[in-house]
């Protein structure tokens, strides 16, 4: 009898452990009571050995540059990060990303506000790899004024800053054009998007099929230059690519972390086995 009480209590505790750990499982509500089902994408960077799809991150940068950067900044990125190890334009020949010709060209494509050191005047000059990505608006008030009162969030850590991560960003970009529920009042300048909390979003549908034309991508594969043909720029393709880019931007050291993690886990595993046998050897003659 007493044994069964103990067993029940143990079972209850086990249940409680499971119930409370389920709290950590990702659960994100997409729009209060919408029918929308979040699409789970098979990201290249998922899983313990996952890495970024270099070509997708490069295309994603093109999407950001040609579309998103009209309103959204990348506060925590510098151009040189694009050529860092693990970055989309990393090249072994240019250990210092500031020398990387791709990075130089992308930086020069942006205009940076600066002070002329001779005259003290505000000037504009082309960017260099050492520059940070510039802010898009002069200040938050200007950003709101240009966007119907809404502040376009910074995108450099957006994938980490939303429950659901990369899936959230991808779904948000593709979930436009659905019929809004009748009880949702959309005031002027707001769009229905079931992924957005509350269902109303100030961002107009940012993507449309073939809004941009992808450039083919050259990848240096062990010394031989391979060309990856440009895919058709569908909404889904662009959403996937820019999400891959933003995932990299939020966690640029992921590949280094995972590879060191793999070595660390193997090391600890071997050490555990050795310590286990040491333990067995030391305690060989001791009953306990």
């Amino acid at each position: 009898m007493k044994l069964t009480i103990n067993k029940i209590a143990l079972a209850l505790s086990a249940f409680a452990v499971l119930a409370s750990t389920s709290v950590f499982g990702v659960s994100y509500a997409a729009g209060a009571k919408s029918e929308y089902k979040m699409e789970h994408v098979h990201w290249h960077f998922n899983g313990p050995r996952g890495s970024y799809d270099r070509a997708a991150v490069q295309r994603g940068y093109q999407v950001y540059r040609e579309i998103c950067s009209a309103c959204h900044a990348l506060d925590y990125l510098s151009f040189r990060h694009l050529g860092d190890k693990g970055g989309p334009y990393y090249d072994k020949a240019y250990k210092n990303p500031n020398d990387n010709p791709y990075v130089k060209a992308f930086a020069a494509d942006w205009t940076i506000k600066d002070i002329d050191s001779e005259t003290g005047d505000v000037i504009e000059r082309p960017g260099t790899p050492a520059d940070k990505f510039p802010s898009i608006f002069d200040n938050d008030a200007a950003a709101r004024a240009s966007n119907g009162g809404a502040l376009p969030p910074d995108l450099s850590v957006i994938v980490a800053a939303r429950g659901g991560g990369a899936d959230y960003v991808y779904n948000l970009l593709t979930a436009y054009g659905l019929d809004a529920p009748k009880d949702l009042k959309l005031t002027g300048g707001l769009y229905y998007n079931p992924v957005m909390e509350g269902g109303a979003i100030a961002m107009a549908p940012p993507l449309a099929d073939e809004l941009i034309e992808y450039a083919p991508i050259e990848v240096n594969d062990h010394g031989t230059i391979k060309t990856i043909p440009a895919p058709v720029a569908t909404v889904e393709q662009m959403a996937k690519d820019v999400t891959e880019f933003l995932a990299w931007s939020a966690d640029p050291k992921m590949e280094q972390r995972k590879s060191l993690g793999f070595a660390t886990m193997i090391y600890l595993l071997i050490l555990s086995v050795l310590l286990y046998f040491s333990y067995k050897a030391v305690w060989r003659d001791v009953e306990h």
């Binding site: 007493k2 103990n6 209850l12 409680a16 119930a19």
Partner: peptide, 16 residues
């Protein structure tokens, strides 16, 4: 002893 396991159970429930 069983009261102790119920105590653990409720600690986890509180966390939940």
């Amino acid at each position: 002893r069983p009261f102790f396991f119920v105590f653990i159970f409720f600690c986890f429930i509180l966390g939940w």
